[in-house]
Design a protein around this nucleic acid. Sequence first.
DNA 1: CAACTATTCAATAAAACAATTGAATATGCA
DNA 2: TGCATATTCAATTGTTTTATTGAATAGTTG
Lengths: 210, 210
Amino acid sequence: MTSRELKNDVYDAIAGITKAFSNPNRLEILDLLSNGEKSVEEVAAQTAISFANASQHLQVLKSARLVRLRKEGNKVIYTLANPKVLAAWQAMKQLAEAVEPGIGLTLRQYRRARQTDQSISLSALDQTRYLLLDVRPAGEYDYGHLPGALSIPVDELELRLTELPKGKTIVAYCRGAYCTMADAAVLLLRAKGYNAVRLAESPVDSASAA
Amino acid sequence: MTSRELKNDVYDAIAGITKAFSNPNRLEILDLLSNGEKSVEEVAAQTAISFANASQHLQVLKSARLVRLRKEGNKVIYTLANPKVLAAWQAMKQLAEAVEPGIGLTLRQYRRARQTDQSISLSALDQTRYLLLDVRPAGEYDYGHLPGALSIPVDELELRLTELPKGKTIVAYCRGAYCTMADAAVLLLRAKGYNAVRLAESPVDSASAA
DNA sequence: CAACTATTCAATAAAACAATTGAATATGCA
DNA sequence: TGCATATTCAATTGTTTTATTGAATAGTTG
């Protein structure tokens, strides 16, 4: 094997992996799976991707070995295959936000319009004054959550308000900066008379050790 | 803007960046630029990419804002735009090597065939017994090199053997694991009667702080 | 200003990718 | 066994990406 053949082989192989990251739908799927394993149906339901197309994208991720699958009954459950997938995906997000300021602008604009742009950092959280609330689906909370967080999925929030202490500010978090469940939760809570803000971080941020 | 519109905008924008990583030629260009700025001509010469095609790929990288350009005379010099580019690219390489064992196998096979698979780590380097040799082009050495390294580009090595101390083992390094200049140097040095091995690391490894 | 060098641009053709549709398969349950 | 559910497969179409070629442009040098 010549030096050129070596390089071609190696860069082709790496591009085989990076190509799996080159589609916006697959990136959204990676963000979903970062929060917990999901069936094809769940992936399709939580994104704007059709069922068959979601299956195709998951297969692309699978042949790049970024995800693994497990059969459970007649369902197929997909999981991230390796913590390095998360690490690489986060590095890409950080790079993208650094070189493309439009991303941050879009996010801020969305939140300013809803007055959910205020957020509080985990390090500033004082348990006596704040309640940390995980508004993701229960399965994602079970898969991994921030210490001390209470789980009430945003869909159930209105019916379960009694579980919240009246005196504290509610600090809601969800799947991360591109997820709007915490925004929805904050808006609902404020409409019901609570003080509520978003959390600056998300559980995925802390799960990225290689 | 709806939640779905927000997500579409954000993931589309990120995919705009990740797409720039999805071509093997561009990955090789990123590895080249990680070692120092280069003109289009240099990029084309050091890869198997035609001149016009190299220019096109550099423009793709530029519109993704991964590289910057500077005009110097009638040359156009390209540089990595941001240290996060390096960080993301390294995360991708690490991921690819983790999920695709064929990459490591190919590299080991190439080096075993040449008996250059032996390498020594920077931390094990003792100055009294080893000489650290940077065999990359001089411009790349100037751009950044490991402390204490001597610069002799592999092309000039045969003519400059007198600069090497006879008693020490020569530890050669180049652009990284996918670069074969250090292998070539080790082979040449051994043929000339020196003890020589590759260094396990490369300068790029240490330059990846965000 | 003419010749030269370095680069970009534009047009093309082949290949790869993406989303849709409907059929096929596999598993579970009545 | 038959029906329902969950998923994959296969075929199709439109779009995007890629490498090649040759022309056009910009800066340099004599």
